[in-house]
Every structure is written in C-alpha cells, then in structure tokens.
C-alpha cells in the first residue's frame, strides 16, 4: 500500500486500530499458535462487532477449538494479541481476568455440566461465585434462566446424567447466560441434536441474542445454523481467517474450500436447490 509512507495517515490508522480495540468485543491481531513444530495459526486477524452473531467454520484440524481456547484464556497464544472489550487478555492480572470472565459465557461442546450438581445448581454456579444473593433468590434466577432457554421447570432438580442431549445443551446455555453476559461463546451448539431440536436451538440463540443484545461467537459445522442465525461467517483455512462475510456473500467465494463447503453435496441440500 503506497499511502503507508505518509506518517500522518499511519498515525491515524494506529489510532483507528486503537479505537477499534476499544469498541469491539473481540479484536484478534496477528495471532500465532504453535504446538511443537505444528503451526496452527499464523497472522490470524479477526474482529467481532457488538451485537453481531459470528459463525466460525473450517475443516477438521484448522484450529477452531484452539482459537476459542486462546480467546477464553485457556491457552496462551505463541504470539499476537487478543483484546476483549479493549483489554489485552494475555496481559490481564488474575483479578481483572476474573472480572472479565463474568462478562462472557461459554457453552462447551458436550455441555461440561458438573455431574455432582442438579440442573438448577449447575445454572447457579456463576451466581454463587460472583454474586452474593440469598439462596432462594439465586434459585429463582436459576429457574428464570431455565424458563428463558425453554427448559421445563420440573427438571430443576434432575441430575445431568438424567437429561437428554438437547436438555444438556439448554442447561449449559442457561449456565452461560446466568450473569447476563455481553459476549457468548458457543462450541458446536447444535452438534448431536436432531434437526428439529437443532432448529429450535438456533431460533433460541437468535432470539436471545436479539433480546439481550448479545455478541455471539459460534463455532459450528451446521450449514443450517449459519444461514439461520449468523450475521457473518469467518472461515478458518491455511492457518488464517481467509474470509469473513455474510453467508450469502461467501457462497460466491472462489476459495476452493469455501466453494466445496457451500456447493458440496450437503451444501446444496441446505440451500434447497
């Protein structure tokens, strides 16, 4: 780029980048992840705007889960920076990280419910950690979240081992939402659900993200989910985000993997052609 030589413009761009980090919930710049000699991410840039639902797709082994773990602070990246709400999470103190963790909720792929606790106790775990509510009030808020995600309230005292797959996902979603986070991470939310259950779950996420003004970062393989709820889709390939656009735009992409993804045997079925 020619204009990069101009110091003024360079300064403005730096300021803009700085402002961007402050405004957007997730800003990832030049992320690098390496395990031994395997480089998973290199120079990965990704920005998620407030109130948007971002889908992340990519073939197996392209590092979707590694990316999620890096953002969540479960895995320290080899290089680059990750800003959540304007703060670099690799440099946060433990106390600030804890405050940050109360601002996002995570739905893990298999639910990750605590098997020793009942459904409503599972949902109330973040409440007992972060809020000092009376037990009865905490339980009522737990029940409220159950109602919010469409769980039958008489399942409140069941154990996770007694739940169906769909109910486990809903319980995990209720737990992720219990502190009314601004940012929600979903790791394959519809994997393992039947198509009707998956569609209902998609609707639920869309409704909740609209009514609670959530920003959603969602890893998925489900094309139906992409079309149903994602504002934008980021495609991971070649260790980077190769494209980030609404699904309708991505359909026309020339990138071989994206083309195969949208126009392969399953892609066509999804579009009803």
């Amino acid at each position: 780029m020619a204009h990069m030589d101009d110091p003024d413009i360079e300064a403005t761009e730096a300021a803009q980048a700085e402002a961007g980090r402050a405004v957007h919930p997730i800003v990832i710049e030049g992320l690098r992840n390496q395990f031994g000699s395997t480089v998973v991410h290199e120079g990965l840039d990704l920005t998620v705007e407030r109130g948007k639902v971002l889908g992340v797709v990519g073939g197996s082994g392209t590092g979707k889960t590694v990316l999620l773990n890096s953002i969540l602070g479960l895995q320290r990246p080899t290089g680059g920076s990750i800003h959540l709400f304007g703060q670099d999470i690799t440099k946060l103190s433990e106390k600030k990280m804890r405050a940050m963790q109360s601002r996002f909720g995570v739905l893990f792929q298999s639910g990750a419910l605590f098997s020793a606790l009942s459904v409503v106790e599972n949902i109330c775990v973040p409440l007992t950690e972060y809020a000092r509510l009376k037990p009865a009030m905490a339980r009522e808020i737990g029940l409220l979240k159950m109602a919010l995600v469409g769980l039958p309230l008489d399942a409140a005292d069941k154990r996770p081992s007694e739940l169906s797959g769909g109910m486990i996902k809903r319980t995990a979603l209720a737990r992720a939402l219990v502190l009314d986070p601004e940012l929600l991470f979903l790791d394959e939310p519809t994997a393992g659900l039947d198509p009707i259950g998956a569609a209902a779950f998609d609707n639920l996420i869309r409704e909740l993200s609209d009514s609670l003004n959530l920003t959603v970062f969602m890893i998925t393989h489900d094309l139906d989910s992409l079309y149903a709820i994602c504002d934008e889709v980021a495609v991971l390939a070649d260790r980077q985000v190769v494209e980030k656009a609404p699904p309708k735009v991505l359909e026309k992409s020339e990138h071989p993997w994206i083309h195969e993804y949208f126009h392969g045997p399953r892609g066509r079925v999804s579009k009803g052609e």
């Binding site: 009522e140 029940l143 109602a147 919010l148 309230l153 008489d154 409140a156 009514s211």
Partner: peptide, 24 residues
C-alpha cells in the same frame, strides 16, 4: 429501550418461575 425489552422478557416468564418455586 433495552431495559424495557429485558423487563418484558422477564414478565412473560415470571409466573412460571413463581409457580415452580411454590410447587417446590
């Protein structure tokens, strides 16, 4: 606007919760 939306959402669900709590 957003407060009203959150409040409306909760108003719809509150009777169910209260009933479940009373049942317990």
């Amino acid at each position: 606007d957003s407060h009203q939306r959150v409040y409306a959402l909760v108003c719809d669900l509150q009777p169910k919760v209260a009933e479940a709590q009373a049942k317990t």
